[in-house]
Design a protein around this nucleic acid. Sequence first.
DNA 1: ACCTCCCACCCTGCATAGAT
DNA 2: ATCTATGCAGGGTGGGAGGT
Length: 548
Amino acid sequence: MSRFPYCLCNQISQRLKAHGIVEQFDAKVNGKIEACLRLLDPITTESGNEDKKLNSGKICQVIDQLVELPMEHQIYDIIDAAGSCGITLKEICERLGIELKKSHIRLVNLCYRFGMKVQEEQCLKSKANRVWISKNFNPEPEVGLICKLDENKTLNNVPDSSKILSEFETSTTSGKLDDPAKLEDRGVGAELSCVSPRNTESNFVGTSADLQDLVLDRRSTVSHCKSVSSSVEADNAPSGAFPSDMLKPFSTGPNQRYASLSLSVDNTRRANRILERLKDERFILKSEINRCLICFEKDKSTKVDRKTIDRILTKLQEQEKVKCITVHSPVISEYSRTKDCVVVVHPSMSLTPELFDEIQDRIRSFNCYIHSKSASHQKNDLLLPVMEGIQKNQSVIVPDGQASKAEAMRANGFVLAKMICAKLLHSFIWDCLHRSTSHIDVLSSKKCAFEGTDTPHSSSKLFFLEATIKEMPVELFLKVVGSTKNYEEMIGKCKMDLHLSDLPPEEYKFLMDAQATGRLSLVIDILRRLKVFLFTVELNLSLCFKLE
DNA sequence: ACCTCCCACCCTGCATAGAT
DNA sequence: ATCTATGCAGGGTGGGAGGT
């Protein structure tokens, strides 16, 4: 038998005292002073003028007070008193002084026997089940939208309490709520046996078709996982020409029991926002999602974590509502390196080179926006005019304190005009790939995947950028990238018709320092934006470009 | 009681832009 | 060249909840 809760005992005694049925007094019990209760005679406390009827009513009232209300009635009263706000199971347990863990089965059984509405909600770091009695329930529209379940599993529409119980039978695992045999007799046990316990959060009827089955049952989750991974390989995997990898679906790990867990209400709402945005835009950067959700939830005391977003995206991928791809982007300051960016696209979106180009432009402008924004915070400048569509380019030559260096570079032949540099570099690479010398064949490693097809890229050639740059003549390097090294020495190398690959490693490192790498990256980025290059990753994920 | 998972928070390292 | 501010990503941590 369970321990009678002290809190509940206190409540009852207070009630009895308030009604003048008992009084509290101190008595010596086993040598210790203890608070005791003394029963007052209800009849003798009343005036002798009262008629029998009144006395009879009072007696009934007293009996009502003396007879302890069933716990379930008290719970019902508490939920009823909570009105339209509802109350969490945790709060109920706190009020009654009972343990949530031990009473959970009893509570959920009760809620569904009385046809109450239960909704899971995120409370700080933990989840909580909030309950309403049906007449007080007024669902939040958005939540209603995103939590629709199969009609057959929608508790609101199922007056048959046996069915309701049968759903909870699965959630409580112990099967103590009702006789399982009865469920089998009614033929609902098999149907509902696959219902995830977390499905109980979603007993609302909504209208959104998009997220109808966001909450999955165990079987469907597993099957979706399989189908996602296979479709990724077969249908959605980008051809070698695309610089992307599909994000692998979330691994459920060794413990499958959590595989079926659905998203919480908060996360479902976040998923809804992502899907809404994806409707309007062809793709979204993961970083954008992060900022967007934080912006939406700025009223909340907590900020959505990136890993939470990862989980949401994984879930959406499992349900084939989105497709996550990793796009490798050239690092603006270092042409031979890439930075990965996860991009969310609609599953129906075909991954064309144009789309990747668009994504890379977005990544670039997003990074520009982020950093210019952070930089603007440092400045105290207030209202500056905004030039829409105009982006400030990196300055290659720092005028202050480096005039002499800039002069040295110009003396070595450095061309200030970026477009001229871009044209020079493009011409060089074009010549490289179309010459038939043996060392060039190594650069033009193989014909690109599009060759021979009827796509507009049929003349594309794949090449290793870093290797191609190393074949650059020193003279061209001095024009396009520039160097502050001694003019006479550089002229000597030019006259010898040396290439960068001919230089000793130390000298190459000196020429291709951080600044030079940045300047070269800038020129390469211009060519990429002009669609002259198509950035790609191929051949053991080496950094490659396609020359159009 | 223990384990696992979810979640938010924190720390660290890196990249970038602007100021000095 | 160095410093500062900002943002992002990866990894670690601890609290809470649910399952065994």
